[in-house]
Design a protein around this nucleic acid. Structure first.
Length: 577
RNA sequence: GCGCUCGUAGCUCAGCUGGAUAGAGCACAAGAUUUCUAAUCUUGCGGUCACAGGUUCGAAUCCUGUCGGGCGUGCCA
């Protein structure tokens, strides 16, 4: 437990004539818990003391006084290993976990972080790949909240572009044919498909679509009215899914929001004297920066602004509006160069806050063999290689329902089956997002998405249900329980894991890596289940009242930690299943 | 070509600010339930940590090079 590294370093430092901070940096976790809880390798002392590391270890230990929070300090080969006292261990795990605000901190006190995530193009339903930015961003916003930050979430919708012209063409065609076309998000996709069919027969429609978009840009009343309908309906459709995913946003300020702000931004860049003409376009030259060669395009040769200009506007707006310390962009790593350029331009504009901007990039999602043919494929709406997120969720919920009804052990579960299968089915899908570090590319396969055993969301949820059930059955008053009874190896292992939770929350926030929470929860559950399964020695409800009370406390501390972790990831923690 | 990134068990991944015998899940084989939820647990099988050099008392981890995959590389966003 990192929590005690400083205490160990303080004991050790004077004995080996080193700075506390230096010693602390060398401390590590022994590979097996029975070796000790904190280890110090003596190799680096060998030269200074002209002695063999194992000898150093045993000699240094003679000089140490064993005090709280440790009960033993042992030489193990070339290592000096500290063992946490029962008191320290139970206080930093079980007792701490049962207090309010477990795992939370005030690291981000009075600081604001803006998180831009999900940010889909509207006018078509979310595809599976959208789950990456969406769940990553949602988890990050919860992590930052838990560490005391003021969080502002933004969905930077792709709500502007020539594709709206295309929709309007298809819509008008339907109206002229005497139909009354629907405008919900699924129908919008149909209009999009219909446009492409119509265009096949009549290529001039392309000009017509451009025309419609031009009208929209010129604030034509009819075009604006249609666009507003499409946008509102899209958001309505998106929110249906966001609700299922337990995701929400403070603002839907999409691309269209910056239409009237980009001119000013472009002018400011020009005023800074960093804008130059190149091949007919206006760019900011970045050649002198370390690893960006390509210039950032601010105005195309026809004078129009670009998406870099738009993101620059958005960055300025966000700072002026929220005065952020950090501004995160949870966007696929394909856009790495783009963001490096944008951040570099902000820096050149003299904005001190530019260094708070960070691209939280993640790997791309492709489809494994068997999803679309025998080859691995990338998603493409045009080729029909799309899997809609909603379909994936529904399929998973269906499977969860089957498993739950097979296993249902009481009437309460049966009565609750709609809610439970939704929670578990969606949980399974959401959890797949956190199964690997975010930078890894992900290959979607149905098997993996629908897995409900082993390392999976349902495994965590199942464990939570199990713990809840034991606590309920025990019905023990734990107010005066004696935690010194929890001394077995397996119990200590669970407590050590519990005690790691605050550190994990803190580190995964700093690294912008929610998958660390997922990994931690799997470890926690596996550690707990190992103890739980050893019924001979670790029966929770026993005749020994005091022991039972202590164990129930341990179960509750585990359950609470698990529930908190699941909540951070956006998974529901069921009482039974 | 250049930039970013990845390469660890048959598959999917941890471990990477250097430390103890490289760990999980899936798959495969065997086992555990009269008692707190078997969506669980135990055991076994499985490794030239892509390759080659280097630095170091010590390298999966740091450095250099090579090979292989992904993404990007100015008027789509």
């Amino acid at each position: 437990m990192k929590h005690f590294y400083n205490a160990a370093a303080k004991i050790l430092a004077p004995a080996i004539d080193m700075e506390v901070a230096e010693v602390e940096g060398l401390l590590l976790l022994p590979p097996k818990p029975e070796m000790g809880d904190i280890g110090f390798p003596c190799f680096s002392l060998a030269k200074k003391l002209r002695n063999a590391p194992p000898k150093i270890a045993s000699e240094v230990i003679e000089k140490l006084e064993v005090t709280e929070p440790f009960s033993e300090i042992n030489p193990v080969g070339p290592y000096i290993n500290f063992v946490l006292s029962q008191k320290a261990l139970t206080e930093a795990s079980v007792s701490a976990a049962l207090k309010d605000n477990w795992g939370e901190s005030e690291e981000g006190k009075e600081k604001t972080v803006v998180i831009d995530y999900s940010s889909p193009n509207i006018a078509k339903p979310l595809g599976v790949h959208h789950i990456r930015s969406t769940m990553l961003g949602a988890a990050l916003s919860r992590l930052y909240k838990a560490t005391g930050w003021n969080v502002v979430t933004v969905n930077h919708l792709g709500d502007w572009g020539t594709n709206f012209g295309q929709l309007m063409v298809a819509y008008q065609a339907a109206v002229e044919a005497g139909e009354n076309p629907a405008t919900d998000i699924d129908s919008q996709l149909k209009l999009y498909v219909k446009y492409h069919d119509l265009k096949e027969a009549n290529p001039t429609l392309e000009d017509e679509a451009r025309n419609w978009f031009k009208k929209l840009e010129d604030k034509d009343e009819q075009a604006t009215r249609l666009w507003t309908i499409f946008r509102d309906e899209s958001i309505k459709g998106l929110e249906k899914l966001y609700t299922r995913l337990n995701v929400s946003f403070d603002h839907y300020t999409g691309e269209s929001f910056y239409n009237d702000k980009m001119e000013d931004t472009a002018n400011r860049i020009s005023e800074k004297g960093i804008l130059k003409e190149s091949q007919g376009a206006l760019v900011v030259d970045l050649e002198d920066s370390a690893d960006i060669k390509e210039p950032c395009l601010i105005r195309k040769s026809d004078g129009a602004t670009t998406y870099a200009t738009r993101d620059l506007s958005a960055a300025e707006y966000r700072f002026n509006e929220y005065h952020f310390t950090k501004s995160l962009y949870v966007v696929a790593n394909q856009q790495e160069l783009h963001f490096r350029q944008v951040f570099s331009v902000l820096d050149r504009m003299g904005y001190d806050w530019a260094k708070g901007c960070e691209h939280i990039k993640f790997g791309m999602l492709s489809f494994g063999a068997g999803v679309f043919g025998e080859e691995r494929t990338t998603g493409s709406t045009r080729k029909g290689n799309v899997i809609f997120l909603e379909d994936v969720l529904n399929k998973s919920v269906e499977k969860a329902r089957e498993i739950i009804s097979e296993n249902a052990r009481d009437e309460e579960v049966k009565a609750d089956i709609d809610k439970l299968s939704e929670a578990v089915g969606v949980g399974a899908i959401v959890f797949t997002e956190f199964m690997q570090r975010r930078n890894k590319d992900v290959v979607f396969t149905w098997d993996k998405a629908l897995n409900m055993q082993g390392e999976s969301g349902p495994y965590l949820q199942y464990t939570h249900a199990r713990l809840s059930s034991v606590i309920k059955k025990a019905g023990i008053d734990t107010t005066n329980s004696d935690l010194t009874k929890l001394t077995s190896r397996l119990e200590r292992n669970v407590m050590l894991k519990i005690g790691d939770f605050p550190t994990i929350v803190s580190v995964s926030t700093k690294e912008n890596e929610p998958s660390m929470i997922a990994e931690y929860l799997l470890d926690l559950c596996s550690e707990f289940n190992r103890m739980y399964a050893d019924k001979k020695n670790h029966q929770i409800i026993t005749d020994d009242k005091e022991l039972s009370a202590a164990r129930v406390q341990l179960v509750e501390a585990t359950r609470k930690t698990l529930a908190k972790g699941l909540d951070l990831l956006g998974l529901y923690a069921p009482q039974r299943m």
